[in-house]
Design a protein around this nucleic acid. Structure first.
Lengths: 334, 334
DNA sequence: CTGAAAGCGCTTACAG
DNA sequence: CTGAAAGCGCTTACAG
């Protein structure tokens, strides 16, 4: 049906191997032969069957990317960057949405799906390190985000603690003393929530401001989570003069609710977030936040994974590069 | 290396074909035989090699999805819905970002990429119908969005004109008479921009309000496009009491700029958009917009494409189902 | 520099 | 209900 290498070989009057050599840029081919093959390819409209190539070579040139949901802006923007980085290196990306459910994460790690990819980029939310190590096969795996942190696994790190401390220090420098934190529980110490909360505490301590657990409100990392959390805080009567949403959508949800309730931002209450999604720049007021180094994260993760796949770099040393963050000061907390 | 069907067959003491039958749920297998095979699969940790299956069967069970950029919220949300719809039918989705460039769109249509998918969902932005028909191969293709409209191509339609008319009528019903339109040029009649502009004009005509081309401002469909456009309009001194951004991010960018300039929304100026992205609900003030039927679009497009792939439905009749829209009235234009 | 053969791991007719 | 054989379209040793 489709045009095959055999058809090309026949049309060009050469063997199959020669066609393969031309396609794979093998060096030592007589220019005239090469041209004849290229002409035949052009004329017949031949296209490599990637499935056949994969079966024979054992390489698919596809990377898997497992994340909760593409409709979350931070993941969508990260996925976009990852796809561009992979593309630039000749790889494609097959995205799998876990919906933040442990079952889906597990099946993404070990399901048939993996036979379609050479390696996996994984943003775990439900599984812990032990489960990941157990469920993962032999194919290369690089983690993103830091709900999981473990010396046995390759991963690209965000400077959660340092960046959260920088945001908090900025709010303190602006004269705020009662800074509410949305998206963590008082005792959290691990995961993005725990690390960011720890950064917040560290900045308070450095400024000799007392830590008040009643200002720490747990919520889902979604817009409505942030809106609900700030509503609860307002209703509780606890006083505060700033809000640190542990990610941007939480901060934006809170910002919305504050404005709905007639609070002036930043005059009465300053608001800051974490992620620097595109929307942060264009909120009203625009959102002060921290850019975690998204492009660098994408680049490093793809590079590391492909090095693993292609056997470059030191195979037995776990790699955990860290991306540089930067503070973005905008209207919501000048 | 990997466990193959042959290994399973040997372990279970049956032939290759029997293993294949079990895996593919062939009906007439003796329960005891089936159990032996299943046990062997379990014990050996066998997993189907999807690449081999694809090569032999000629089916990849993957759909291609070509869109401009996942970092655009509407596309990310649509992609998320499409992936869920495809998943529910046993298909995966391979996303390709065209960056809104004609070259990329073309190569997505005809490149090697297509050998990995059974069919393509395509949101064209640069290519026209003729180019698409020429570049597309024989594999099924379903278009989304309506920058292209053509009776020869399967596509899922948005009621652009009707929905835009509904938004405009709503603004008019609120007493607005000078409604600026952001994201189209005066003469546009085709594409999402042209169709939405036509809906706007139709609603004005129905209310006997004169159409003023100085209120129609062209811009990129991005946040900064909307912000720039409204800035130009304000600077021009042309009076207006409402803004209709032809998509939500344009409207949100404009909303931002209006608030920065000290305009009161909706008291002085009402704002409405188009798309109902998640963010619209949580903007401050929340954004009045139109929900184009995104979930239905995803569902219909996937269903139609898979029907084409599997040869269901009438093969020679072009299908162009239309999704239902609904107006979402919120604070920015009550 | 080029050719003929083997084989990646499945599914698909074809027999029985 | 099950088996033995062929073959999807490539790449990879192995010869020459």
């Amino acid at each position: 049906m489709a045009v095959t290498m055999n058809d090309v070989a026949r049309a060009a009057g050469v063997s199959l191997k020669t066609v393969s050599n031309v396609i794979n840029d093998y060096e030592f081919i007589r220019p005239a032969t090469k041209q004849r093959v290229l002409d035949a390819i052009e004329e017949l409209g031949y296209e490599t069957n990637l499935t056949a190539r994969s079966l024979r070579s054992g390489k698919t040139s596809m990377l898997g990317l497992v994340l909760a949901d593409l409709s979350v802006p931070y993941y969508a923007e990260l996925a976009s960057d990852i796809m561009k980085a992979a593309w630039a290196r000749g790889y494609r990306v097959l995205v799998e949405q876990s919906g933040n459910e442990a079952d889906h994460e597990k099946s993404a790690l070990q399901g048939q799906f993996r036979s379609l990819t050479d390696g996996l980029l994984f943003i775990p939310l439900s599984l812990d390190a032990g489960q990941i190590i157990q469920a993962a096969g032999k194919k290369p795996l690089v983690l993103l985000g830091e709900f999981v942190q473990d010396p046995r696994l390759d991963m690209v790190l965000i400077q959660n603690l340092e960046a959260a401390a920088a945001v908090t220090a900025h709010l303190l420098a602006g004269g705020r003393r009662r800074i509410a934190v949305l998206g963590a529980r008082d005792g959290d110490t691990t995961g993005s929530n725990g690390l960011r909360l720890s950064g917040y505490k560290a900045a308070l301590a450095a400024a000799a401001v007392e830590y008040d657990p009643t200002l720490v409100i747990d919520c889902e990392w979604r817009r409505d989570g942030g809106a609900d959390a700030i509503a609860r805080l307002l209703d509780s009567g606890v006083g505060f003069d700033a809000v640190f949403g542990l990610n941007d959508v939480v901060a934006l949800g809170a910002l919305h609710e504050l404005l709905v309730r007639g609070k002036r931002v930043p005059d009465e209450i300053a608001v800051a977030g974490f992620d620097d999604i595109d929307e942060a720049r264009f909120a009203s007021p625009s959102l002060t936040t921290v850019e975690p180094g998204r492009a660098e994260i994408a680049e490093r993760a793809v590079e590391l994974l492909i090095n693993r796949i292609e056997g470059k770099g030191s195979a037995d040393k776990v790699e955990q590069p860290e991306a540089e963050f930067s503070l973005r000061v905008r209207q919501s907390a000048p």
